[in-house]
Write a protein that binds this DNA or RNA. Sequence first.
DNA 1: GTACGGCTTGACGCCGACGTCAAGGCAACA
DNA 2: TGTTGCCTTGACGTCGGCGTCAAGCCGTAC
Lengths: 142, 142
Amino acid sequence: MRIGELAARAGTTTRTLRYYESRGLLAARRNHNGYRTYDEDDLKLLRQIRTLQDFGFDLEETRPFVECLRAGHPEGDSCPASLAVYRRKLSELDELIGELQAVRAQVGEQLVRAERARDELAADATVPGGPDPVCELGGRTR
Amino acid sequence: MRIGELAARAGTTTRTLRYYESRGLLAARRNHNGYRTYDEDDLKLLRQIRTLQDFGFDLEETRPFVECLRAGHPEGDSCPASLAVYRRKLSELDELIGELQAVRAQVGEQLVRAERARDELAADATVPGGPDPVCELGGRTR
DNA sequence: GTACGGCTTGACGCCGACGTCAAGGCAACA
DNA sequence: TGTTGCCTTGACGTCGGCGTCAAGCCGTAC
């Protein structure tokens, strides 16, 4: 099949396939008129790349899987180098998730604190003789 | 104070401050010879930006906080627009964390599956009359 | 005077994964 | 024969948040 069909079957674009080729991830045969030609194995390989990309792997991280398939193994993750990438990715994910949860907690605290400060000002403002309101409080003014 | 001192006190670089200025986030007065001049309020403003950046906010998201401080409010999050950013960020974080956890689970499954497949091949290989090993198994060969 | 550090503006570089445009070749169909 | 659609290579654009370099000015110390 030609590049357009392969791209369509993998749910991507011809530009992407040429990019992968330029990165040495996806090799193509050429037919008599110079068009790139692919087979079902290329589709499998491409789908492997796309799956990993969807997981957030960057292109270089997919290389071991690609080379594993190219070496004739039944799956891209049939080789130790691929398993190593899985493991590294898992620890990266764990670290990232942890950091994001910490940030989430901090931002949540800030929100609570800021809302409390706002409410206290609002309460003061309703008390006769309380401080003058400095901020616009509650909803939008305009 | 001049730009170098402000940058140092905020733990950043002069390039960053000029960039913020170009984005309209950090205004500077100029002294007689054209040098940028800043005061303690600018430092506070800059620290507000940096804190949010550390949380993963992008620059545009810090703008409401900056404008809030500029308007004379005691804190960058004393204004409704800032609270709205907090809330939006929280939901973004929740969504992202959820996605990452889902990816983590999937990658974990893939790893387990691939390891099991490898071990089964290894077990077969130790059985006399079992299938020939096709992959390099276990540790590194070279 | 001159050496040095800090300041100025302007402009290009970087990263990853492509998008998009240009100019042209190839094949099938009306 | 011309139109249409797919293909080719090449090259520049995108995004954010700066880094880095160039050329030159300002002020102080020696």
